[in-house]
């Protein structure tokens, strides 16, 4: 552990921690756009600049490791002035169409503009214009809103190991894009969408489905496989319009394409909501009591007539471990057969 002073507070932090980590652990807020604790530090947005006593110029808190006796100032007039300039510069190359932006209300850039009360921008000039739209089915890529924080690129390579996108070109023309600027063609895990601090990357399925303020968030578990990723359902007017996952969950906020974008079934009119029993060659709606009684009766009949091994059970990876355990227990103990299997065979 090393002792450092942040904004006049003496704190002990672990060796090797960055100033940003140390500040967060001690509830000292430092604004950032390109930082994500789950990704390698980048040092690109420059918002986390802090002043260290004895150093000529401010340094980024996200990349600078603490050292014994370090005296850090996370805010002062000069630092806030620099941060304000940075936000204004970003806004000078941004559509600023918050009124119609899907991300409004959940956008870090918007929040910073609010925080620094930026009504008039001192800077103006050329804005990047990208007319072409990405035709992929899941991810809306509006690169005019991109602030080049590089989080999407890092998550795609560091976490997902796919590297479907990279920063291309340089300077003012730098642009995040798939190779040869074609339509995105990847796993569509949407991790990039989940880390984007602005409206540059959005789920296509959610577009126009409701503003952030209208959303009710419901914690749940992804039903697709036994991993049991924690998900947060974003519900508007009783419809799931988006799925996210909290970084502090067991899956650290990462999801796959199914978990993140495969939520449409939830409100599909074709979805089975009641048991069906086939009578006279046609499925008919039935009550659960009726259906379970019918299954129990038929299993009993088959077992009596042909023996328990005439019955086999197949379970699903979409069930929880507990449900799968119960199912095999039921097959072995209640039905009396070992004929039990499972699509993913745990």
């Amino acid at each position: 552990m090393v002792s450092i002073t942040i904004d006049g507070r003496r704190v002990k932090v672990r060796e090797g921690a960055t100033i940003l980590q140390a500040s967060r652990e001690n509830d000292i807020y430092i604004p950032t756009l390109c930082d994500d604790p789950r990704l390698e530090p980048y040092g690109g947005c420059r918002l986390c600049l802090v002043q260290i006593k004895g150093m000529a110029r401010p340094v980024t808190a996200c990349t600078t490791p603490v050292s014994e006796g370090m005296i850090v100032e996370t805010t002062n007039d000069e630092i806030e002035d620099l941060r304000r300039t940075i936000v204004e510069l970003l806004l000078s190359d941004h559509p600023n169409d918050c009124m119609v932006c899907e991300k409004a209300g959940d956008c870090t850039l918007q929040e910073l503009a609010y925080f620094y009360n930026i009504r008039k921008n001192r800077f103006y000039g050329e804005r990047r214009q990208y007319a072409e739209r990405d035709g992929n089915p899941f991810i809306e890529r509006d690169m005019e809103k991109c602030i080049l924080c590089g989080k999407c690129v890092r998550v795609c390579s560091e976490v997902q190991g796919v590297s479907a996108i990279e920063i291309a070109y340089r300077g003012f023309s730098a642009k995040v894009c798939p190779p040869f600027e074609k339509d995105l063609d990847c796993e569509f895990c949407g991790q990039c969408v989940s880390v984007c601090p602005t409206g540059a990357l959005m789920g296509k399925l959610s577009m126009g489905k409701g503003r952030q303020k209208d959303i009710e968030k419901v914690e749940s578990v992804c039903p697709y496989c036994g991993c049991g990723c924690n998900i947060t359902l974003h519900v508007a007017r009783n419809e799931v319009i988006r799925v996210s996952s909290r970084p502090d969950s067991l899956n650290e906020g990462w999801l796959c394409v199914k978990g993140r974008f495969g939520f449409k079934f939830n409100s599909s009119p074709d979805r089975l909501k009641h048991p069906l029993i086939k009578r006279n060659g046609r499925f008919e709606e039935a009550s659960w009591d009726e259906a379970l009684d019918y299954v129990a009766q038929r299993l009993g009949e088959i077992k009596d007539r042909y023996g328990a091994d005439a019955i086999a059970g197949l379970s699903s990876a979409r069930c929880t471990n507990e449900e799968n355990y119960l199912f095999q227990k039921f097959m072995r103990a209640a039905v009396g057969t070992n004929n039990v299997d499972h699509c993913a065979r745990y």
């Binding site: 390579s157 590297s163 479907a164 990279e166 291309a168 070109y169 190779p179 040869f180």
Partner: peptide, 25 residues
């Protein structure tokens, strides 16, 4: 040529995005 990049990408198991990022830098 795009084809050449894609060929090397496959041969060397290096994502084409990396080639593109470098080529445009």
């Amino acid at each position: 040529p795009e084809d050449a990049i894609n060929w090397f990408s496959e041969q060397l198991d290096i994502p084409p995005s990396r080639f593109y990022g470098i080529a445009t830098f």
